[in-house]
Amino acid sequence: MRFFKLLFVGGLSLVSLASQAETVKGLYQVREPVSSQAPEERDQATQRALATLVLRLTGDPKAAQSPGLAALRKDPQQIISQYGFDAGPPEVLKVDFDPASTEQALRRAGLSLWGADRPSILGWWLNDATEGSTLVGDRQASATPLRRAAQHRGLPLRLPLADLNEQIVATAPNLEGADPAPLRGASDRYNADALLAVHAREEGGQWQAKWRLWLGDQKEAGSVQGADQAAVADAVMLAVSERLAPRFVVKPGASSEQLLEVQGMNLERYAALGRLLEPFGARLQSVDGDRILYRVNGSAEQLKAQLSLARLQEVPADEAPASATPVQPAADGSAPA
């Protein structure tokens, strides 16, 4: 069993903590386009909604076809709390899944889940269309398909204001380049965890996009295409989700029990940390002043990745403050005294 000692960096305030990882709202609500409200169309859309939700919660494109979910595919109603139609446009079937029964069913199927607290992503998105180039800004109409795609794929997306200074920085060469340095300075004020740079172009009635993602030391890149802006936005967000998820989900069989001590705690941080540790089945062991000890299940790499969203850093035992007394796990696995 490994022992981790972590510290809130520089007396980090609640504001700084909350501005990093974001709790995805509506994570268990899925909206699927429909051509009518006929029962057959509704049933097909419900199946698509289930597949979308499973992918959103696992990041695994094959998870929805898992043998352990055969009963759910046959009768998804057992985890649906309500559904209804939204006239749009476009017209959609809105399905609300019950979080508790959904998570229980997916865990019984042996699937690993990605929690609701996810890295915030700042999206620098440049559209090149026949009418010219446009940097998508937070309050522009062109932001709508991006926001819908991010919500559909369970990603907390932020967009820049796209003011004149940002338009000068967010050029096609900078967005397609492997070095994020040109975007870093303009991104600081948005205080996001990850940077997403996308250059989308319309050619011959089709859209294609090149994208790059930076999160800590993780670098990802790819290209997608779609029939329109909405389709290419969804393709980008799907690709980003599939690249990020393995870093944060707790994989069955790859987990081990860990002891985690966090220093610099207060009531507000306790609530935020509890949300981050939900995927790891955290069990509170002890509280001593501003120190708190958890027993968690997960790999060391995934635990560190999740806690980095709260800007926590690991403190080696020999570098801990003088007042710190490392807590050792009891030999019989019981809670430390």
Rank of each mutant, 00 (worst) to 15 (best):
Q151H: 08
G68P: 07
R295K: 14
I121Q: 01
R139E: 09
V136R: 07
S35H: 08
A310V: 04
P76W: 05
Q306E: 05
E257V: 05
A227W: 10
Q306M: 08
P182N: 06
E257M: 00
L260R: 04
T325Q: 15
A209D: 00
Q44M: 13
E278D: 01
A322N: 12
S16V: 09
R184P: 08
E176A: 04
Q313R: 15
R147M: 10
S299L: 02
D193T: 08
T144D: 13
P336T: 02
F97T: 03
E268D: 15
K74M: 02
L213N: 05
I79E: 09
L135V: 07
L157I: 04
W125I: 03
M237F: 08
D193K: 06
E176G: 04
Y28Q: 04
Q258K: 14
S323L: 13
I121F: 03
R283M: 10
Q263R: 15
A49W: 09
A170Q: 05
A100Q: 14
R275S: 14
A324R: 09
P99N: 05
G226L: 10
A317W: 10
D193A: 09
P173K: 00
V250L: 14
R107M: 10
E261A: 07
Q151P: 06
P279C: 06
P336L: 02
V15F: 12
V9G: 11
L175A: 00
A335H: 09
Q328A: 14
R108A: 15
L175V: 04
A149N: 04
R56F: 01
V224R: 05
K251N: 14
